[in-house]
């Protein structure tokens, strides 16, 4: 057998390299369906489609709960008192600073739509409880105000906002950032104060 220079690949090595490369591509391609099958299937995605909520039955001061994508959504018809309380707070003193105006849609200050999952460890907070007239989480004592912002307790962030839009004055669609445009993510990006 003649000695070959190991510096440059020979024709024989090219064959080995080609075979190995094609084999690796095949192995990688085999992984695709195995990994992909664990992603949400078509029926789950369909069940997570946007839902429309009629606001007319919700009385002032009332908070209702609907489900979207398996998560509880709080829809709160705020009283003037609750709105004023939320606006009176010094934003920079908040653990998670955010103005109330940035947490509602323009011209619809009385409607607060939140994902009802405590940002601490995921329990569902209770409405109209706690020191701030907002929500109280019984698991570890987090307290949220009338804008759903964290005021006291171990939760790090304000209650998250789902994507939603007003179709009419009395109807919203949860799950679309604008009417007819389905949201891909869960929450709206926070606006800088």
């Amino acid at each position: 057998m003649t000695t070959m220079s190991s510096a440059e690949p020979t024709r024989r090595d090219f064959l080995y390299i080609a075979t190995g490369a094609v084999g690796l591509v095949g192995a990688a391609a085999t992984l695709v369906p195995l990994v992909s099958q664990m992603n949400p299937d078509a029926s789950t995605i369909a069940a997570g489609a946007p839902i429309e909520v009629d606001l007319t039955p919700i009385a002032e001061g009332q908070v209702i709960k609907v489900f979207w994508r398996g998560k509880p959504i709080f829809i709160s018809h705020r009283t003037k008192k609750e709105i004023d309380e939320a606006r009176a707070v010094n934003v920079s003193s908040l653990p998670d600073p955010q103005a109330d105006q940035d947490r509602v849609k323009k011209g619809h200050d009385q409607w607060l739509v939140l994902i009802g999952i405590c940002t601490h460890l995921g329990c569902i907070p209770l409405a109209h409880q706690g020191n701030y007239d907002g929500w109280f989480c019984p698991c570890h004592g987090s307290q949220y105000d009338t804008s759903g912002r964290i005021r006291q307790g171990p939760a790090p962030y304000n209650l998250a906002l789902p994507p939603y839009a007003f179709l009419t004055e009395s109807k919203i669609v949860v799950g679309e950032t604008q009417p007819g445009k389905e949201a891909s993510g869960e929450t709206q990006p926070k606006k800088e104060a």
Binding site: R12, L15, Y16, A18, T19, V22, G23, V25, G26, A29
Partner: peptide, 16 residues
């Protein structure tokens, strides 16, 4: 197509 190409490559590798 992929399998036929790979089989061909493997065949010639085997012979070599």
């Amino acid at each position: 197509v992929f399998l036929i190409v790979l089989a061909g490559l493997l065949y010639f590798t085997k012979r070599k």
